[in-house]
Amino acid sequence: MNSEDEIRQLEPQKPVYLELNFQIVCAISLIAVLGVSSVTPAFPSLAKALKIQPQNLGLLVTAFTLPALVLGPVIGVLADRIGRKKIIVPALILFGIAGTACGLVRDFNLLLFLRLLQGIGAAPLLSLSTTLIGDLYTGARRMTAMGYNASVSSIGTASYPTIGGALATLGWFYPFLLPIVAIPIGLIVFLGLKNPEPKGDRNLQEYLTNAAKILKNRRLFGLFIASAANFVLLYGAYVTYFPQLINDTFKAPASVIGILLSSVSVAIIISSSQLGRLARIYPATNLIQISFILYALALAIVPFMPSIWFLLIPTTIFGIGLGLGFPSIQTLLADLAPKEYLATILSVNGTFFGLGQTLGPVLMGIAFSIGGINSVFYTGVGFAILIFFVFRYLTCTRG
């Protein structure tokens, strides 16, 4: 360590949330979670306007999420070799242009193509925003930054459906114009982000060989499994079938369903904002294990709630689990990954949670077809308990 680094460490540090670099990272994260939740409220009116069968509307989500599943490892390799900004800035510009264009077309096939392009722009954003935190922070400040970033993302996922729904009352295409904000954010990243970039002078074959060896680490694999499991439970039991239970059991209107769905994001914001403090007391592996216990508890009690507002109990427990678990997984991945392979590791993780998003509704759909709505939540309980033990075996035992 040179004298300049020593002086910098001795200087008082701003709170993480006041640093410009961190604020730019949060802006990237807010764009990363914009593409689905802001436009789904417009789907019913879109189907009527474009004369589309409702069962085909899911293609608008699939076209958007597919690139992240396919391109994850490639994005990581490129970001580790040529730099983060050289990937993030063009991605934001593409997201903004293709996304805004979606609001200007009136042909469904062209809309699907533009959603695919927008998805290509979105693909690097979530994993590379986390990579930037890994680049910029270490130790307790890294965990604090991960927690704050998760809180900000949750604010986005909680508010975008409301914003999109309000805009959709003016016309189905208005929510699709929101991505235009990604273009100025791309310029802010280009001009304002001060991030240590990789040198990019390594032999590609050697790089890929070493990266493959690192990815064989059983602790990393355990974290990848836990990351995918988070999204199996979130997108399978919660996003897809929890609204169905509310409607079938309590005959609640859409506005009430929206409030209950948003309560999870509120719980995530509260718990993840305290992650820095909790990390000083509990190891990250313990927090991840606790998260799966909370998932199992929350899903187990859902079928027994006597009235609709009692559902706030399991949604709050589930949200606390997400607020503790997901940022802790990201932090541990950043801690375990060698600096020169950080983007690759986190992008592979992005592929795993894309896999979870895809498999979750399928797995829970099978459970629903076999045993009805309650079986979805009992399957979720069993799955959460299974992942608890798998994760514990892979990360907390020698071998």
Rank of each mutant, 00 (worst) to 15 (best):
F377I: 14
F113T: 03
I259V: 14
L287R: 06
I225F: 09
L260M: 14
T397E: 04
S271A: 15
D335R: 04
T379K: 05
L111R: 02
S129Y: 06
P44I: 08
A279V: 02
L261A: 09
S29P: 00
I28N: 00
I120F: 09
I93Y: 08
W172P: 14
A122P: 05
L46S: 00
D5S: 13
S127C: 13
G276D: 05
P306F: 10
I75M: 04
A123T: 10
G83F: 08
F95A: 01
A229E: 06
K14S: 14
G222S: 01
L191K: 14
M305W: 11
P179C: 03
G99R: 08
A140M: 05
G99K: 00
P124F: 14
I180F: 05
G58E: 11
A122Q: 04
T249Y: 11
P15A: 10
G171F: 05
D201P: 05
V390A: 12
R218N: 04
L132M: 15
K216V: 06
G323R: 02
V266W: 08
G365Y: 06
T285V: 07
Y238F: 15
S154V: 11
F95Y: 15
A226T: 01
S45L: 07
L34C: 11
A27Y: 02
G276L: 06
T315L: 07
F43W: 03
W309C: 09
I7H: 01
L223F: 13
A182S: 11
W172V: 14
T169V: 13
D107W: 04
G192S: 10
L220S: 05
A384V: 11
L178D: 08
Y160F: 15
A91Q: 02
P361W: 10
S3G: 05
A212L: 12
T62H: 07
A226S: 13
R218A: 10
P15H: 10
